[in-house]
């Protein structure tokens, strides 16, 4: 069978960690919360000193939104649902060509949802300043490209240890590649990388709150 489901899964990992975060960051940088002033608050006629409306977001001087509002969360949730629906035909074709069954597709979708959660959280929660955006892009690139590179280096230069096996499972690209094989057991084996991706998303949300 063709590795169609495997390449689809790996491609979507790259989308979740490298491309989609850039889309989200660009959208966040452009978005203005409802009611927030476009101009600096020094133009308020009564000379009020408060320049931060309660509960509203402020904009950095370069226009980077410094907070994620509820509308953004709901909109991106709808968008991810739309991705899942729009990707359905692709998964159907890939599963047919790759000799995969329904449980294979569901397993890949389960793993991918963890990766998308991590990508979403990294992009939307950490990228609240130009420095934060650099951190977000760097984190996505490390997850998507750095971990596979580390796996390759471990495999090439330290094959005796089990480190390369851990790196293979930890790197989303290689993990999804292995999980998208046809006719495996329903639950991912191992399951802990999915938990790691979800934990990464939760950690990014927590760090975002702390900031």
């Amino acid at each position: 069978p063709l590795p169609a489901l495997r390449t689809l899964a790996a491609g979507l990992v790259l989308h979740a960690l490298l491309i989609y975060p850039l889309v989200l960051m660009r959208r966040l940088a452009r978005s203005r919360p409802a009611g927030a002033p476009e101009n600096p608050p020094s133009q308020t006629p009564d000379g009020a000193t408060t320049n931060v409306p309660d509960g509203a977001t402020t904009n950095a001087p370069d226009g980077v939104a410094t907070s994620v509002h509820g509308g953004f969360v709901a909109a991106t949730a709808c968008e991810l649902l739309a991705f899942a629906i729009a990707g359905g035909p692709f998964f159907l074709v890939a599963a047919y060509l790759g000799d995969a069954v329904v449980s294979d597709v569901l397993r890949v979708l389960l793993c991918l949802s963890g990766v998308y959660a991590a990508g979403w959280a990294i992009a939307s929660r950490l990228a609240r300043s130009p420095g934060g955006r650099s951190v977000s892009v760097l984190a996505g690139a490390l997850l998507a490209l750095g971990l596979p590179a580390a796996y390759y280096l471990a495999l090439e230069f330290a094959p005796a240890g089990a480190a390369h096996r851990v790196l293979y499972d930890l790197a989303p690209v290689t993990f999804l590649w292995s999980q998208a094989a046809s006719r495996l057991a329903f639950w991912p084996q191992p399951l802990w990388p999915v938990a790691v991706y979800v934990a990464l998303a939760a950690a990014a949300v927590l760090v975002g709150w702390a900031m």
């Binding site: 063709l2 590795p3 169609a4 489901l5 495997r6 390449t7 689809l8 790996a10 491609g11 979507l12 790259l14 989308h15 491309i19 989609y20 889309v23 989200l24 959208r27 968008e79 739309a82 991705f83 729009a86 990707g87 692709f90 074709v93 890939a94 060509l97 790759g98």
Partner: peptide, 21 residues
Amino acid sequence: GGGVLFLLVCLASLAVGIWPG
């Protein structure tokens, strides 16, 4: 914008997958 990129990634990765065949 985001949706078009998603479809492009799907199409490209699927094309890579069926390339050998």
